[in-house]
């Protein structure tokens, strides 16, 4: 190990212990388990800083935090899956004694032989682990894919297709003419003024129309068709830009959340 590495590691350990002691001291009297609480807050702060250290460069602390996160979340989801899906949803419908064993309330209407079907399919799915008879797992998988596709097809067709078509039936020429003054009033972008409303309706119409043209592959994009497709790609790019902007805002919110944690819960600066 290089000398610098050892010095950094020693510094981290010293800081960690100091923070633990100080935090535990601060929690004394407020909480019963103040030593554990002090450790947890310090550890959370350490992990936050370890992940952030990746911005400087890749390092063992970041790797530690990443692996810990992967391991813990895998275990968390496994436990969650077992206790919420198998124990809570399935067990009370399978057998009374099992329900009593897991101390979950029985379902009066449950206890139906029908519910053994998912058990069988679930076991078949697990056969994937075997090389020889792994192919059997395709049957339950086919069931999952088939039912999900069927369920979603109708929902999407209705909400994302038909309803969206009807949402584009917007008044393009404006309605209820109330004179030129009213027409130009309320010009902010909250789309309550007549002019703004009309402009936004045109944007919706042109956006849908030209976007569809751009994704129409059966004709070469030339002439009027090409012009429409160019407007379409512009609108797509504006959409991507907006989504990029929103993403920046979202990521900064997360950073604010983490820094607030460091400043408030750990350092108690604010």
């Amino acid at each position: 190990m290089r000398k610098v590495t050892i010095i950094v590691m020693a510094a981290v350990i010293v800081l960690f212990l100091a923070s633990w002691i100080l935090k535990a001291g601060a929690f004394q009297g407020e909480h019963d388990h103040y030593i554990i609480r002090g450790f947890l807050v310090t550890f959370a702060a350490f992990l936050t800083l370890a992940v952030m250290s990746f911005l400087y460069q890749d390092n063992p602390y970041y790797k530690f935090a990443e692996h810990l996160f992967v391991g813990v979340s895998a275990a968390f989801w496994m436990c969650m899956g077992f206790w919420t899906t198998i124990v809570q949803n399935l067990v009370p419908r399978l057998s009374t004694s099992l329900a009593d064993f897991f101390e979950v309330p029985q379902r009066a209407e449950g206890l139906n032989f029908f519910f053994y079907t998912p058990v069988i399919l679930g076991i078949l799915l697990l056969l994937r682990l075997s090389r020889k008879i792994g192919w059997i797992s395709r049957w339950p998988l086919a069931f999952i894919v088939g039912t999900t596709a069927g369920l979603n097809f109708i929902r999407y067709l209705r909400s994302d297709f038909i309803k969206q078509i009807s949402s584009t039936f917007v008044p393009l020429l404006g309605r209820d003419w109330e004179g030129i003054g009213a027409f130009f009033s309320n010009l902010d972008l909250s789309a309550t003024g007549q002019l703004v409303m009309m402009v936004s309706n045109w944007v919706i119409f042109l956006g849908v129309f030209c976007g569809l043209i751009y994704f129409y592959f059966s004709r070469e994009h030339k002439g009027v068709f090409g012009a429409g497709s160019r407007v379409g790609i512009w609108i797509l790019m504006i959409t991507f830009g907006a989504s990029f902007g929103y993403t920046v805002m979202g990521r900064i919110s997360l950073l604010v959340g983490r820094i607030t944690f460091l400043f408030r819960d750990w350092l108690e600066l604010i």
Partner: peptide
Amino acid sequence: VAAVVAPQLYPYYPAQLVGILGGVK
């Protein structure tokens, strides 16, 4: 919703969604 998905929900407004709160803003 979180800001990242807000743009994907705008097509549902106002017919299918009463309103959208996008991110911290």
